[in-house]
């Protein structure tokens, strides 16, 4: 209860702080969402992407 109250008074009460909260939240959310999606994609395609199999070909060239 006190947490919601402090959150409300600190962030949501004024329109200016509410807007800033939304902007900062959008930046944070973008990073989390994009990087999370990227991580999920790489996890599902493990061993198929170029950066996962690149070292195999690099070793052959050196030999």
């Amino acid at each position: 209860m006190s947490l919601t109250k402090s959150v409300y008074n600190l962030l949501f009460r004024r329109t200016s702080t509410f807007a800033i909260t939304i902007m900062v939240g959008a930046v944070v959310f973008e990073r989390i969402f994009d990087q999370g999606g990227e991580a999920v994609f790489e996890q599902m395609n493990r061993g198929k992407l170029w950066k996962h199999i690149k070292h195999n070909y690099e070793n052959k060239e050196e030999e």
Binding site: Y8, F18, I22, G25, A26, F29, E30
Partner: peptide, 24 residues
């Protein structure tokens, strides 16, 4: 009223964050 108000603003803020992200 405090918790209801905070909840309303939280939902509004979250929706706006999603909107900003999608628009961007």
């Amino acid at each position: 009223s405090e918790s209801r108000r905070t909840f309303s603003y939280l939902v509004t803020g979250a929706a706006t964050v999603m909107g900003v992200y999608s628009a961007k």
